[in-house]
């Protein structure tokens, strides 16, 4: 069986961690061909060729593929689909935008956010905000799947796959890119960080979110947030952890001023060690915490930052 894996490429650069985790999931199903698509994607293709377990890399470069617009990217994948039994990607927002479109064009169902591979046709995926896990067997000839990266280890390096170029499909010309608003940060990326410190509504303001950031920087951590903190403007949208935000599973997750709604737990309950700091001893976050501290965060967080 042959697997086509859409690499995560941002501005010409390979998102190695997400792509390598999807490679681990994909290897279980057959030979993996990675597709690196973008306005420039050659460097990303070269980087993907070094991932252990990658058999071949296809590079597609075209202006229409520059910002991962759904329509031209899906058209490209569909033009290549005939050679593959599985078409997969890490479950990033880019892939979630494109892959259901690919599936519909192929008249097959998509399997979103798969968290486990049982066999080449059968996959596990969380449903109901992770309150249940469904095992589904695909009856379709081509399987289109996005993999939840937090549940797979990244494949190592050491590969030396051959790199070929392929041409873009005709751009349907239905949409155009206007702008990206991406905040540059020196902190680790949220979904691949070993430590995450998240703040919730309890933090109370954008200014006081600095307390969370200071603790994060002391731990070399990424910063996360609850939906309430993002909705209130304390933190940007790309920090949201949860059912509809990012799913993380770091070695250490510190939840500060977060009550622990199921929609938040959906994004962090597979973390190895969970610490909760909350002044309400009844807060549901304590039910999933390994270490709970019932305290006012405005005292506890600075004290913790100093003590570390």
């Amino acid at each position: 069986m042959a697997v086509l894996l859409l690499a995560e490429v941002n501005n010409g650069e390979l998102a190695l961690d997400a792509t390598a985790k999807a490679v681990t999931a994909a290897r279980a199903m057959g030979d993996v061909t990675v597709l690196a698509a973008g306005a420039s994607a050659a460097a990303a293709g070269e980087a993907a060729a070094k991932i252990d377990g990658v058999a071949k890399v296809l590079v597609a470069e075209d202006a229409s593929l520059g910002h991962r617009m759904a329509e031209p990217t899906a058209a490209l994948i569909v033009s290549l689909a005939g050679d593959y039994s599985h078409i997969v990607a890490p479950a990033t927002t880019d892939a979630k935008n494109v892959m259901p479109r690919v599936a519909a064009l192929l008249d097959v169902m998509v399997i979103s956010d798969a968290s486990g591979v049982v066999d080449a046709d059968t996959f596990e995926r969380p449903i109901y905000a992770g309150n249940a896990v469904q095992t589904v067997k695909s009856l379709d000839t081509t399987k289109v799947i996005t993999f939840r990266t937090s549940t797979f280890d990244a494949a190592g390096e050491g590969g030396s796959a051959a790199v070929e170029t392929v041409s873009a499909a005709a751009d349907p010309g239905l949409s155009s890119w206007v702008e990206d608003k991406v905040a540059a940060s020196d902190r680790p990326e949220l979904t691949s960080a070993g430590v995450v410190v998240s703040g919730g509504r309890g933090v109370g303001s954008e200014e006081d979110f600095a307390l969370i950031e200071k603790l994060a920087d002391k731990l070399g951590a990424a910063v996360g947030a609850s939906r309430a903190a993002v909705d209130s403007g304390y933190a940007p949208n790309d920090w949201q952890v949860g059912q509809t935000g990012k799913v993380v599973a770091p070695e250490l997750y510190v939840a500060v001023g977060i009550s622990g709604a199921i929609q938040h737990l959906a994004g962090m309950k597979d973390s190895k060690i969970i610490v909760a700091i909350n002044k309400d001893e009844e807060a549901p976050i304590f039910q999933v915490a390994d270490f709970g501290l019932v305290a006012d965060l405005f005292e506890a967080v600075p004290a913790l930052t100093d003590a570390l």
Binding site: V108, M109, I111, T122, P126, I127, G130, N131, A132, V133, Q134, T135, V136, K137, S138, L139, D140, K269, I274, V275, E281, F286, V288, A289, D290, F291, G292, L293, V294, A295, A300, A303, L304, A307
Partner: peptide
């Protein structure tokens, strides 16, 4: 197109502890 083989409870986490202070944490 997807046959549901089974639906199960997610893995549960072992109970944790409440610590008394920042130092203990």
């Amino acid at each position: 197109r997807l046959e549901v083989v089974k639906t199960t409870e997610p893995a549960t986490r072992a109970a944790g502890i409440i610590v008394g202070s920042v130092d203990e944490l």
